[in-house]
Computed example of a mutant assay.
Amino acid sequence: MPYSPSPAPLHAAAGPAAADIRLIVTDMDGTLLDEDKRPPAELWTVLELLRERGVLFSPASGRQYATLAQEFSRAADGMVFIAENGTYVVRDGVELSSDPLDPAVVAEVLATVRRLNADGVDVGAVVCGKRSAYVERADEPFLAEVRRYYVENRVVADATAVQDDILKVALFDFGPAERTTAPALARFAGTHQVVVSGEHWVDLMNRTANKGAAIRRLQRELGITPAQTMAFGDYLNDLEMLDAAEWSFAMANAHPEVVRRARHLAPANTDNGVLRTVARVLGLPLPA
C-alpha cells in the first residue's frame, strides 16, 4: 500500500467510530519515553483502560527482554514484548519467536569492532543473548550506557565464547554512529540487517529480523489486521514496524526518513505524543 511522501496529522474526526484498534505497538526511546528515559505518568492508567477494551499493548524496542519486563512489571501479564529489535518475542515468559545469529557472524562483527578500537574509534560491542548481554569493555562510561538498555549484562573476556543464543550485536559509538560505526559494518549489509537505531547505536541482526517482521507474525497468530494496528516510532529501526500498521505514526521529532515513511505525525515524545494520540484515536478519558 503506498505511503504519502509527508505524513498527515491526525484528523480531529478520528475516534472510536473511525478506528477498530486491536494492537498498539510502540518503540521506547525517543517515542514512548520522555527525554529522561521515563514513561509518562499516565501510562499505567492507559494500559488498564486498553486491557478493559481488549486492546493488546506491545513495547517494541532494541532493549533486551529482561529490561522491558522489568520496566513494565506493573502491567506485564498478557503483554507481548518485542525485544532486541524484533529478534526475540515473549509473552508471559514464553518465547513466541526468535531469530538467532550464526556464531561465525558474531565473531566477524567482534573482529571488526576490535579493529575499530585499534584505529582509535571509541566503540564497544554488546553481544545480545537470550539470557544476558555480554561485553568485553569494562570501563564505566561504556557500562553506564549498556545498563540503560540491558539490565542483564556480564563483562566477559571473550564474547565469542559465551554459551547463549545470540540475537543481535549492538555497537555503541561515543561519536556519531551513522558516520563512523555504520560504514564499518557496510560489508555485512548484503547478508544481514545493519540498522542505525539511535544517534550512538548500530545494530546487526539477521536479514529476516526486524520489528515489522515480528509484528506481522503476531498479527497472523492473533488474527489482527494491519488496519487494526497502531504503531509509533522515531528512528530507522522502526521503519518496518510502521509498514506493518495502517495507523502508523512518526513522532514529531523523529528521524526525517521515519517522518516520510509514516502515515501520520504524533506529538513529540517530549510532549507525551504516544498516549495523547492513543487517547484521541480511541476516545479514552485522557488529555488529547
Rank of each mutant, 00 (worst) to 15 (best):
L50E: 02
A254F: 00
R63C: 01
F188P: 12
G124L: 10
R207Q: 12
V113W: 08
L286Y: 04
A18M: 12
P141E: 00
L43P: 05
N85Q: 11
L204G: 06
Q163T: 15
A209D: 02
T45H: 13
G124V: 11
E145K: 15
E246W: 14
L218W: 10
A279K: 09
V123R: 05
S197R: 02
E178M: 13
T277C: 02
V202G: 06
A76N: 11
R220T: 15
G93I: 07
R207M: 10
N253Q: 12
R137Q: 12
P40K: 00
D238A: 04
M79D: 00
Q219Y: 02
P183W: 02
E199P: 13
L56M: 13
T180L: 15
A104L: 10
P287W: 06
H264P: 01
G273Y: 08
Q163D: 15
Y150F: 15
A244W: 08
Y134I: 09
T270K: 08
V196F: 02
V123W: 01
Y134C: 03
G198E: 06
D158E: 10
E35T: 12
E48P: 02
F172D: 09
L242V: 05
V123Q: 00
A133E: 02
N153I: 11
L282P: 02
V162W: 04
A182Q: 14
L236G: 08
Y149M: 08
A279S: 14
Q70I: 02
M230T: 03
A125E: 06
A125W: 09
V156N: 02
R131W: 13
A159Y: 05
L56A: 12
D99E: 14
G93V: 09
G93A: 08
E178T: 08
Y88V: 00
F232K: 03
G283Y: 01
R179Q: 15
G30T: 03
A41N: 06
L242S: 04
A250Y: 04
D234S: 11
D158M: 06
V80W: 07
V94D: 12
D34T: 01
E136K: 02
V194H: 09
G223V: 11
G62F: 00
S6K: 13
A13V: 13
G93D: 05
D271L: 10
M251A: 07
S97L: 14
E108L: 14
V121R: 11
R63P: 01
S248V: 01
G124C: 09
L222D: 04
V123G: 07
V146L: 01
P16G: 07
N153Y: 15
R51Q: 13
R276H: 12
A244N: 03
P16R: 11
P100L: 03
L265F: 05
V278M: 04
T191C: 09
A170F: 09
R217S: 13
L185Q: 06
T87N: 14
R115E: 15
A161H: 06
E84R: 10
P256T: 01
L10F: 05
A177V: 09
P226W: 01
A60L: 05
L47R: 07
V121C: 11
V202Y: 08
E52R: 14
N272E: 15
R263T: 06
S132K: 12
R207W: 10
E108D: 15
L49W: 08
R216M: 12
T26H: 05
I24Q: 01
F232V: 03
A41D: 11
A133N: 06
S4G: 10
K37G: 01
A161V: 09
